[in-house]
Amino acid sequence: MSITVYYTSVSGSREVKQHQSEIFQFLDSKKIKYFAVDISASADVKEEMRKKAGNPSAMPPQVFNGDKYCGDYQKFFDAVEDGKPGAFFKL
């Protein structure tokens, strides 16, 4: 199991920063190890994230467990609301 969160360190959007923060805080609070990959580091990384998500316009945060796509912030939020965050992260 290896959770990867694609995020951006240079988003001008307060909403994106908030969404990223919520996912990181959740993972930290549950002591779930993860890799944070900053897509602002290179266009190649952004393309990799979009290809893996199967969405040419996907925006961060995007979450994966190994090669399995977990979803974006909205799917994370819905899973937490439903009390099923473990299912979202495919744990």
Rank of each mutant, 00 (worst) to 15 (best):
A87F: 13
Q62D: 10
S40P: 13
S2Y: 03
S42I: 12
A87V: 04
E22Y: 13
L91G: 05
F88R: 00
S11R: 10
K46I: 08
P56T: 14
I39E: 13
F64Q: 04
D38P: 13
T4Y: 01
E22L: 12
D67I: 03
K68P: 02
K46E: 04
D82P: 15
Q18G: 08
V16L: 08
Y73L: 06
V5Q: 01
K75S: 07
E15C: 12
G71P: 03
G83W: 14
K75L: 05
T8L: 08
C70S: 06
Y34C: 03
Y69I: 04
I39S: 10
K75W: 03
A43R: 11
D72K: 00
G83S: 15
M49L: 06
P56S: 11
S40R: 13
S57K: 15
V10K: 01
G86Q: 02
M1I: 03
A53M: 07
Q25T: 14
K31G: 07
F26H: 15
Y69S: 02
S9T: 10
M49T: 06
F88D: 12
G54R: 14
D82R: 13
A87I: 03
Q25P: 13
L27D: 00
D72P: 12
A79N: 02
V80K: 11
L91H: 01
V16C: 12
D82Y: 11
F64C: 04
D67S: 14
Q62S: 09
M1G: 05
M1S: 10
Q25I: 09
E22T: 13
I32L: 05
V16E: 11
Y34F: 07
Y69D: 01
I23F: 12
G66T: 02
I23H: 12
D67V: 02
P56A: 15
M59S: 11
E81H: 15
F77E: 11
Q18A: 10
I32M: 06
K84T: 07
S40A: 15
M49R: 01
G86R: 00
S42F: 07
Q74S: 14
I39Q: 07
E48S: 14
L27G: 02
G54A: 08
K46L: 14
S21G: 14
D28Y: 13
G86P: 06
V80C: 03
E48L: 15
V80W: 02
A36L: 12
D38H: 07
D67E: 15
F88I: 01
E22P: 06
D67N: 06
S29D: 03
F89E: 00
M1Q: 09
N55C: 11
E47R: 03
S57A: 15
A36W: 05
G12I: 10
G12C: 12
D72Y: 02
E47C: 06
S11N: 08
K33A: 12
G86M: 03
P60T: 05
D72N: 07
V5G: 01
F24R: 00
F76Y: 05
A53G: 07
K30L: 05
E48G: 13
Q18T: 13
D67G: 12
A87Q: 09
C70N: 03
N55W: 11
D38E: 14
